[in-house]
Design a protein around this nucleic acid. Structure first.
Lengths: 296, 296
DNA sequence: GCTCGATTATAAGGAGCGCTTTGGGGTATC
DNA sequence: GATACCCCAAAGCGCTCCTTATAATCGAGC
């Protein structure tokens, strides 16, 4: 078995023409070089160098091996450098999945900071709602998933690493001329008779649950996961809605009023990843930047 | 430091998708694979594989390393195979130097046998007389030198490996119509008054010495290391000569008679090489074939 | 829900390898 | 002839790696 160590020694010996000089170049003692060369010759099955008086020359086999050594060692160092670039965040790719309101608020800020801190990293972004984004993670189709949950921590991603980012609150959205438009806050029950405009499927489920807790079943006239559309529909007087604060942060709110909802309904926004991937530098850096973006 | 062993393990793990299967493929135990992978990840500074439930997938760094591994391991095996070809006499080059009468007798026979036994070997042949052929050996300009010596073993190549091939005898050469042409043998002293035709410088020196021992100094009219020319000069009646038997073996002897010289003068024909080179398979095979050719 | 089979991780023991130190032989140079 | 340099050989030591043995985890099937 020929080892890279052998090839380094042989190359140094060939370059310097002396065991001692090679040892100095390699930072070891001369007997070490001597032993390596002997081991290499034994592995090769034929002498590699020939000593004629003072000087050394390579045999044909030695020349062959030196010629190969260059390529092999170059390949090895190239591999090491590329890996070091990934480990040192001078390179690396992160496949990020986010839900719509996250990808328009947290994600741009986080990715800008990531790019600034580590210009070599590359991030790809795909949109997906929480139930499927965790599946993409498990299937290996992404590295980080931005997700949210309404309930407690005992949810469907116990096998994933969860990095909490922020707590989002639901706010009520009513037309400017609504009877409650001037109220500071509103309870869900006060909207029992309204027409509703629901958001994404998961938010819709949450809405139905919240209304159920307040003792009624909402009459949902429209449902879309396009939040600007929801706001537009509300502004047009077609109904009311509850939306995550985060969704409002990146939308124009002309023609509507937002109301605090009492009791407050919260959703936890978290970043998910696989346990192993959490150790990957580029993934860890992305999680850090997402957390930092959430603080702003 | 990334070792080829690591790359082999990683490649096997990547190919089989399992540590245990990789261990079976590599012919070692599963903990060995586990430890190698851990060591490799530690050396890389980032995870290389990610476990999602049952299956394993490579991280980006893992994919990079596998991609490099192919080339690196291919280079290593190519080097090993090329060296093995030289060590196994399926390849290899020998630079042979011979004196003229050797290269026309021993050498063709030996090289034909070498080619038959090891078709992959290549031999180059250059002619040079003994004093300089040993120098070429020391200077690295050839691998094997065919040489001869008249004296005892204590000569000028103590630092070389000497393989004795055969003992050559000097014979006298006289014109067909010479007064001694019918004699069985002749002593040097009987030729004291003749005109002499000498061979190569070394043979000429030897001739002068032998004549000196017989009590006279030869009158040398011509000197050439072209043995057919010597024979031609003798046949033309321009003098007498003593030549090695070997030189006569490959020359036409029309018009001359050969006589045994008493007391016999011998020269040892040997193959020389450097101690290190004697271990090189192609060199050793060449020496063996030369020895075998000398027996014929 | 439970057990079985397979896979992986961990710990301990032992063998092998490589490096260093030390001392000796050889050669070219002054 | 003395010196300096270079290489080899042997002994000691630490380290690495592999193996065996055992525990823990996961998925499949009854």
């Amino acid at each position: 078995m020929i080892e890279p160590r052998h090839l380094r020694v042989l190359r140094a010996v060939s370059a310097t023409g002396s065991f001692s000089a090679a040892a100095r170049e390699l930072g070891c003692t001369q007997p070490a070089v001597s032993q390596q060369m002997k081991a290499l010759e034994s592995a090769a099955g034929t002498p590699l160098i020939v000593r004629a008086g003072r000087e050394m020359r390579l045999t044909q086999a030695g020349e062959v091996l030196v010629r190969h050594a260059t390529g092999i060692l170059a390949g090895l160092t190239a591999a090491e450098e590329e890996i070091a670039a990934i480990a040192g965040l001078r390179a690396g790719r992160v496949r990020l999945v986010s839900f719509p309101s996250g990808s328009s608020t947290l994600v741009p800020s986080a990715l800008a900071a990531l790019r600034a801190a580590h210009p070599g990293t590359r991030v790809s972004l795909v949109e997906a709602e929480p139930p499927s984004s965790a599946e993409m993670l498990r299937a290996g189709d992404c590295d980080v998933a931005l997700a949210f949950r309404y309930g407690g921590p005992g949810e469907e991603w116990d096998d994933l690493v969860e990095r909490p980012l922020l707590t989002d609150r639901l706010v009520g959205v009513v037309p400017e001329d609504h009877r409650l438009a001037r109220a500071e806050s509103v309870s869900i029950a006060e909207l029992a008779e309204e027409a509703w405009i629901a958001g994404c499927p998961r938010c819709r489920t949450q809405l139905v649950e919240a209304c159920g807790a307040a003792g009624f079943s909402p009459r949902i006239d429209f449902a879309t996961d396009d939040y600007p559309a929801v706001i537009g529909l509300v502004a047009a007087g077609l109904g009311v809605a509850v939306l995550p604060e985060l969704a409002l942060a990146s939308a124009r709110v002309d023609g509507v009023r937002t109301l605090r909802v009492a009791p407050a309904v919260r959703r936890e926004i978290v970043a998910l990843t696989l346990p192993d991937l959490a150790q990957v530098p580029a993934v860890a850096a992305t999680l850090d930047e997402l957390e930092r973006a959430a603080e702003r």
